[in-house]
Every structure is written in structure tokens, then in C-alpha cells.
Design a protein around this nucleic acid. Structure first.
Lengths: 114, 114
DNA sequence: GGTATATTCAACCCATCGGTTGATAATCCA
DNA sequence: TGGATTATCAACCGATGGGTTGAATATACC
């Protein structure tokens, strides 16, 4: 129960199995068994991973007969991209000063800061 | 000892204290005591956090008399931004198809801000 | 040399995490 | 109805994580 959402998203992404699940879901929905198939661990373990991803808001699960279909929700990834972008000026040589960076952010059409 | 570097970076960023330390370091170098000052936890705990950040490659520490000066290294954040960008097409309504996305990526290289 | 300061090391505590196995619930199908 | 399939729940286990306190190390200053 990591309180804040940002921490929950980072923690969810800190596991390679969960990142692989997300990568799989990026190309379309899937059931729990389909997601578990490539991995050498139990379906229950995958089910737990899906719980973590769901609590982080990275996936949504819809029930459909005896299947639970999983779909990727990219919203937290968008938030993450914005978080990382705070530091872009530090590695992007195009920005010599913080002012330049902020001015550019403001002018950009991407409206990362609704 | 999370083996792969990506997991180490995500895990390092999953803690709010460590993210606050990074935010502080974004505005300039600092010593361990300076970094510890705003937090209600012991200096030893901060020292541990710095170890995690250092192993993730997010900071570098240089010794200087009895002080260890910490500096932020944005390289892993750059890697992270690229990782998240894999999923950009999923939330960015500008891209209707994967083809559009790939064509755009190819055309602009990494400079989305030109 | 002796003391104060800055930082890390070491041992410990408790909660959480990733995994297991076994049981349970829900749904389809013959 | 009853069996097969899909998925979760529950209890457990060993490892890791974030915190503590206390001791050790390294350096500057008097």
C-alpha cells in the first residue's frame, strides 16, 4: 500500500516480469492465462503481478465469462513521462539555462501541463 | 541487488525520499548532511538512500575532506524517458497508427523540441 | 595528540515482496 | 448434474527494504 500514486507506478515498473506483461499488453488485450504462458512461474504469481499493475492504474481488468481480460491503461505512463521531463534539461544539451527550458515548455504544443 | 539496470532505476525512484533527494540535487551538488537536513529520519538512513541512488547510477559521490559531495547523473533518467516513450503512441492522440508514430520518431530523431 | 564533525558500517526489527502450494469461486459445456 | 477451465484467495516461506541505534573511520582544527 505505498501511499502516493507515483511511488506505486515506479514500484510496479521495477519488476521485469511486470514490464514484460505491459509490453505484451501494448500490442493488445489478453487474458490471465495468455499473459502467464511465456513465464516459468505459476498463474497465481502472474495474478498477483496483475493486481500490482491494476493498483498502480497501469491496467484495467474486465470480466467476461470465466475470463478476465486485461487492457493496458497508459495514463500513469503519461504522468511518468511528465515527471522524467522535469529533468530533461540536465541531459539535453540543447538547453543551456533553466529559463530556456521553461520558455520552451510553455511554448510547446504538446501541452504536457494542461 | 536487482540484476538489471532498468529495474534498479525504477526501484530507486519508487521511494519519495529518494525522489526528493534527486529534486534537491537537480539544483546543485550537496553533501550528505545538507541532503539529510529537511528529512525527519536519521543521517544513516539518508546514507543508505544515497547508496541506492548511486548503485542505480543516478548520483555520483566525490570525496572531499571529510565530506562526500553528491552530484546528480541524469543518464539513467534519459534511458527511462526512452523507455516510457515506447508507450507514447498509446496516450498521445497525435498518433493514430503505429506507422505514424514510427515515421515521426524517425524524422525527428530525439529532438522533439525543435 | 585530542576533540569535533562528517560519513559509513554493522546488527537488528518489522513490513512488504515475489514466489510456492492448496483450496475456493465462477462459468461453460456435455 | 457434474466435470473441465479460468482465475482468485489464503497461508506460508525466504529475501529484500526502510528504518533504528551504536560503533568505526576519516578528516579538520586547536
Amino acid at each position: 500500500m505505498t501511499a502516493d500514486p507515483v511511488s506505486a507506478v515506479f514500484a510496479a515498473l521495477a519488476d521485469p516480469t511486470r514490464r514484460a506483461i505491459l509490453a505484451r499488453l501494448a500490442s493488445g488485450e489478453a487474458t490471465v492465462n495468455e499473459l502467464a504462458e511465456p513465464f516459468p512461474i505459476s498463474v497465481q504469481a502472474i495474478s498477483k503481478h496483475l493486481g500490482v499493475l491494476e493498483r498502480a492504474g497501469l491496467i484495467v481488468r474486465t470480466r467476461e465469462a470465466q475470463w478476465r481480460r486485461c487492457r493496458l491503461d497508459p495514463t500513469p505512463l503519461r504522468t511518468l513521462a511528465e515527471w522524467v521531463d522535469q529533468y530533461r534539461r540536465l541531459w539535453d544539451e540543447r538547453y543551456d539555462t533553466l529559463d530556456d527550458y521553461l520558455r520552451d515548455l510553455k511554448g510547446t504544443s504538446h501541452d504536457r501541463h494542461q
